[in-house]
Design a binder for these strands. Structure first.
Lengths: 343, 343
DNA sequence: ACAACGGATGGAGCCGGTTCCACAGAGACG
DNA sequence: CGTCTCTGTGGAACCGGCTCCATCCGTTGT
């Protein structure tokens, strides 16, 4: 007497089989209390018999929410990004929200991804990692009333989780100065970064500030800029280390770049730390493995906090007033074996 | 004369404003050709004026597809998993599909995640990384006609992208034997692995086969099992290296574990490769940085191929006959600086 | 001039849930 | 014993698209 199953069972099938109305089935599904135990049992039996599972898409449409958090990240290829995503995943894992990952490698694709959220109906909230959204996108997102949190990127329109990059750069440089270095170079990102990272620029500021506080003259030829790739950093570092008067220490704006500097030193036969000190930034897992002195920023924690904050906003509903608070996580220098007093 | 915008514009609003029917708007949206240019222009104007964006949720419900690919991965904490996900992302990035990431850390949570797909309506296809689904889940997924591809895990029910783990283990061990080693230990995963990895077991098989082919007697005390964590591997390796007759070489079932072995050697003051040779497996990025000799498997490529294959299945529709083909990617030994002839 | 034909168009109905309102029936109370 | 709750329940309307069918209108053929 089974009707042949043309596709998965729907709530109507269940209602019919249990001899009740769809409203009642819905009430059972959503754990409402005002259903008679006998009725509830009938419904549960029917669900069991038909192997019924509600369609989440239909729920989405009806409830106007998706139970999805979108995570937008440029360069998923970078270790720091991965570490942050892990932090996010650790929070979402124990929430009813799923994680939609948008890896934005190219400018056009990035545009595309943002467009997706115009309507704001693909996700209930957006977490932007290391990425400052253009003002018009911010406007769109706000218009769509889509809760957003930024991690590692500030914007007056949204709450953000950041670190004090200037201070980080200052700490790193101070560490080198305290060791006795005077010839300190900097390897960072190009200013007109397509993804509008501000981090590297701020770290440069900290570097310059520390130098000036110590009364050390800044040398323009000691400040070099490339990209996050360690290959590029390696090339830059080779140039730097071939200068007539070469630096005795290098501060790199990221661990990836610091690794490139270490490679350059190895290629040129320059011993670290005896002849060259190197400080990185981020403290990715590899840093510990190769003994890199670096500025630790809580990467995992930043993702975790960002996700927590976002879930809070999402739970708060669309009509709450969101203060664009800026939450600052601590940075510290982790001294390992790539820094020492100049030889 | 604007109606006040109570929420985002819908297709009805557009139709009303353009003075046409919803069917026509839908036709314009979907690029059908049978619309008069004049009419099309009116519709496009209305869309522009109302800043209309179609609701993807409503489309999903209507079209019964989501444009989402689910990626299920245990231990997103591992480098190899991340590398595979990158491969997946690189393919999905230039497709209309979005990536939903399910990080399954705990057994119960994993169950939960699989349950989500019962209905098969959260995603149009599923990519399972390093994870053999239980038979009843396979049954469910098949019943839901949800296209699935396995990466780094075989199952007769689905196509899969794998490597020859036995051969990989054999190659690694042979490399050590050819260098002259006879006392070769193995560090791998515990057999009753909660996530049912088979890789480590197969790599053990390759190890044993290589030994027996070379006429070297297998020593049970040289085969140790722990988890993927390099801390655990470090502990195991310390035990191993304190044996009265200690091995001159260690083959670890993963780079993470090999790094643990290297740490152990450092702690015990055993020089690598002079006193101890170490071979890993995977060739994660760190391996190159620390100069680890290892068996390279194409991690990124496996994700890429898996995603390509899955998209093909998804495009093929639900009624196609899917042969559970097994695609095998090549492995090779990458010799770096942690292996040498025994001292 | 008229029938047959075919492309453009409007709109009801559907996808599968949720919600809200109307209503039935049981018990409380004057 | 009538009225007034108050709980439990059914089902229409709705979320916002897509699709198919009926209809309309302009051509073409005779």
């Amino acid at each position: 007497m089974e009707t042949l199953p043309s596709g998965p069972a729907t709530i109507n099938d269940v209602a019919a089989r249990a001899g009740v109305g769809v409203g009642t089935v819905s009430r059972v599904l959503n754990g409402r209390t005002n259903v008679r135990p006998v009725t509830r049992a009938k419904v549960l039996d029917a669900i069991e018999a038909l192997k019924y599972r509600p369609s989440s898409i239909a729920r989405n449409l009806s409830l106007r929410r998706t139970h999805v958090i979108g995570v937008v990240v440029p360069f998923f290829t970078s270790h720091s990004a991965v570490e942050r995503v892990r932090g996010v995943a650790s929070v979402l894992g124990r929430s009813p929200y799923d994680l939609m990952l948008f890896d934005i490698e190219a400018e056009d694709r990035r545009e595309h991804a943002f467009r997706l959220f115009d309507r704001g109906d693909r996700s209930d909230g957006l977490l932007l990692l290391s990425l400052v959204p253009p003002d018009d996108e911010v406007e769109r997102l706000r218009a769509a009333r889509l809760p957003c949190v930024l991690v590692d990127a500030p914007h007056p329109g949204f709450p953000s989780i950041v670190i004090d990059d200037v201070r980080g750069g200052e700490l790193a440089t101070k560490h080198l100065i305290e060791l006795g270095h005077r010839l300190i170079a900097f390897v960072g990102d190009k200013p007109p970064d397509p993804f509008r990272f501000a981090s590297s620029r701020d770290r440069t500021l900290g570097y310059e500030r520390a130098l000036s506080q110590a009364g050390i003259e800044a040398r323009p030829e000691f400040v070099r800029e490339g990209t996050q790739s360690h290959q590029v950093a390696r090339g830059i570092a080779i140039d730097l280390l071939r200068l007539p008067q070469r630096p005795t220490a290098v501060f790199a704006a990221s661990d990836a770049q610091a690794l490139g500097v270490l490679e350059a030193a190895r290629i040129l036969g320059i011993r670290v730390p005896q002849e060259l000190s190197v400080v990185g930034f981020d403290d990715v897992e590899v840093a510990a493995l190769v003994g890199l002195t670096t500025v630790r920023q809580p990467l995992f924690e930043s993702g975790r906090r960002g996700a927590e904050l976002l879930l809070q906003l999402v739970a708060g509903g669309a009509d709450q007033v969101v203060e664009p608070v800026v939450e600052q996580l601590p940075v510290e220098v982790v001294i390992r074996s790539t820094t020492a007093a100049p030889g």
